[in-house]
Amino acid sequence: MKTDIILAGVGGQGILSIAAVIGEAAIASGLNIKQAEVHGMSQRGGAVHSNLRLSDLPIASDLIPQGKATLILSLEPMEALRYMPWLATTGWLVTNTTPFVNISNYPDIKEILSAIDNLPQKVALDVDEIAKSTGSAKAANMVLLGAATPFIDIPYQRFADSIVKIFTRKGQAVVDVNIAALEAGKAIAEKVLKG
């Protein structure tokens, strides 16, 4: 098993919280992990990404070579497109459709969404809206992760378990909201997969 994931977003959006849940689930599955993160200046509202590599064999590089990512997971639609050179021709893009506009030259969102739509394998969803409808806007990251679970070769229950493990100290209500968000995201991806 080998899954190479690029997590993308804007500094402060919380891509590392998604990485933490995947990482926990991967460890519980006995997989090797390497996870390159962005710290420092870019965390101040700049473009950030994380390379997350899972494998049952030893992993050499911390960075994913171009054209080798099996999955790009993005909290922001334009940021999703930034990492296209890394996406394998057989890979999937799972992205939020709500733009995060903190630059004056942000392109026309319609053009961004149509570029995403032109990809052969993608799940595009409004994670913020879905998170609100399932109980808390704060769980948007888990909606996105839920939509990615069908593309990661780890049993779904392991993701739910790691949410429980990571969020328990914040109370049962927080756990429930995040599990609901995960479920909602997964349901949407499954619908796309069924075509």
Binding site: Q43, R44, G45, G46, A47, N102, I103, Y106
Partner: peptide, 9 residues
């Protein structure tokens, strides 16, 4: 169409 997104305050 992807624009640069430098860090900001």
């Amino acid at each position: 169409i992807v624009a640069n997104r430098p860090p900001s305050m």
